[in-house]
Design a binder for these strands. Structure first.
Length: 483
RNA sequence: GGGGAGUUACGCUAACCUGGUAGACUACCAGCUUUGGGAGCUGGCCACCCGAGUUCAAAUCUCGGACUCCCCA
């Protein structure tokens, strides 16, 4: 059977999505298991993605005036416990360092599940006057959350990489004013790099971050119709400021507590992206995030070999400065074998060059996203391949948005909520009175959670009644099963 | 949190029920022939998840653990 090939996916994406996902990311050599349960190795092609995302996001943060810092991995227990809701939210998943060598530590140290507590302890020392504000810091790091639900590569891992932005402002207005800028940055990264559409909105109170006053999120839909949370932004209000004594003398000479925000994007996004764009042949990586954007495959026989490789090298050099190109001149594999391999690995564009092409001074280009073939004159190669990469990037985003749009179901009755959530999947978008009871009822009856209240549809709530209890609606909320 | 299935070489698997030499395909390495959608031949390399028990003898039977996957809350 062909299926026993180590680098061939034996399962269709539509038949069994989670099996397909694991096979696709492991056989393409993007990710592998390690000896630590729930913690995975990011291999070069996926770490490349993270570096590119980091670079692009970091630039936008810096334009925004946010500065990078680095704080310790370890957090003393008494600091972690300072904000009550925060520690309650995290304590089941915190990993602890309790000894060094053979001696026990007097106070055990938490391995950061997130860095609010260790950072804010310092912030309280650094902030004295209104002139010290705003303070807008960010760090790129790893965190550990010892999840007990079973781990999934990229999507739910015990260790992951992210950015954690932590900003401090003098007033509530200034703090809240940061929200759209940050969510805008994340939306831009998602659209222009990951080619992913996400639904931006406010989390319900029961789903917000432990310790925050409000959480805003961008929510994705996975191919199986379940939702998964993407980047988020938390308005912390003054809760941490009070717990950590972050206060300053304002212009009137009075002590005030500061207002804070936190925000993050993580390596989970890579998993959402690979899951979204991939197909039965393997991964499809958007051009902006692909380590190799264009692969050249020479096609020759014994007689034409020297000449074809020579021409392929000339082509390679011509393209090299303009995009990330790779010449696959391995002699031991047939062209067909190479086609399959690069398709599995998601390289967006393939160029074939053989004796027939050389004669016509052209090459054959094949798009990974839709399989379309083009004959391109060598003279136009740069212009045309750049065009194709751009078209692929845009097409992937468009497909992602279409998928979310066509799987978002506006409903008015409770029966419809149950039907869609239990039978179809996708987002259920519905008017809601805002009560915890109604939200909990849906969760109990369908196992689906409120993902968020999308910003751009809130005006639809006017004059509507809550689909769950019938009283007047205050919000439009999305429900979905979570991945 | 509850239940179920599984783990043999890089991968997919055979032998397990009925205890006794771990076999095939693929990959990998070498050589020769090949090369427009996963080429062929020859030779070679690599494995029983961990621990305890039963036994003359354990991949196989029993118990415990680790890990992976699935389903339900």
């Amino acid at each position: 059977m062909e299926d026993n090939k180590p680098n061939k996916i034996s399962i269709k994406k539509s038949d069994d999505f989670s099996q397909w996902y694991i096979q696709a990311i492991i056989k393409s050599e993007f990710m592998d298991y390690t000896s630590v349960s729930g913690a995975f190795a990011l291999r070069p092609d996926s770490y490349f993605i993270w570096e590119a995302v980091q670079k692009a996001t970091d630039e936008l943060f810096k334009n925004e005036g946010i500065l990078n810092v680095y704080f310790p991995l370890l957090i003393p227990e008494k600091l972690l416990e300072k904000e009550k809701e925060h520690i309650e939210g995290f304590s089941p998943e915190v990993a602890w360092v309790t000894e060094t060598g053979n001696s026990k530590l007097d106070e055990r140290l938490a391995i950061r599940p997130t860095s609010e507590t260790i950072m804010y302890d310092s912030f309280s020392k650094w902030i004295r006057s209104w002139r010290d504000l705003p303070l807008r810091y960010n760090q790129w790091n790893n965190v550990i959350r010892w999840e007990f639900r079973h781990p999934t590569p990229f999507l739910r891992t015990r260790e992951f990489l992210w950015n954690e932005g932590h900003t401090v402002f003098a007033t509530k207005e200034e703090a809240e004013g940061e929200r759209d800028a940050i969510l805008g940055i994340y939306q831009k990264i998602l659209e222009e790099y990951f080619a992913l559409y996400g639904v931006a909105g406010k989390k319900t109170d029961s789903e917000k971050f432990a310790g925050a006053e409000a959480t805003y999120s961008i929510e994705h839909l996975m191919p199986d119709g379940s939702a998964i949370q993407g980047p988020d932004f938390h308005s912390d209000g003054q809760r941490f400021a009070v717990a950590f004594d972050i206060k300053f003398l304002n212009k009137d000479g009075k002590q005030s507590y500061a207002y804070q925000n936190t925000f993050a994007i993580s390596t989970r996004e890579i998993g959402v992206m690979l899951a979204t764009h991939g197909d039965d042949r393997g991964l499809v990586v958007p051009p902006k995030l692909s380590r190799i954007q264009c692969v050249i495959i020479p096609i020759y026989n014994d007689e034409s070999k020297v000449h074809v490789i020579e021409e392929a090298k000339i082509l390679y050099k011509k393209i090299k400065g303009r995009m990330r190109v790779h010449l696959d001149d391995r002699d031991s594999y047939s062209p067909g074998w190479k086609f399959n391999e690069w398709e599995l690995r998601g390289v967006p564009l393939r160029i074939e060059i053989g004796p027939k092409d050389i004669q016509k001074k052209s090459v054959v280009a094949v798009r990974r996203d839709n399989g379309e073939k083009f004959t391109i004159k060598v003279a136009d190669i740069i212009e045309k391949t750049e065009e194709l990469l751009k078209a692929i990037q845009e097409n992937l985003y468009k497909k992602s948005k279409n998928f979310v749009d066509s799987n978002t179901h506006e409903v008015k009755t409770y029966q419809q909520i149950k039907d869609v959530l239990t039978k179809k999947g996708g987002f259920v978008q519905t008017p809601w009175c805002g009560s915890k009871d109604c939200e909990a009822k849906v969760k109990r009856d369908t196992a689906a959670k409120a993902t968020n209240m999308p910003f751009d549809v809130q005006d639809k709530a006017k004059g509507k009644s809550c689909a769950i209890c019938g009283s007047s609606a205050k919000f439009i909320v999305n429900f979905a099963k979570s991945y």
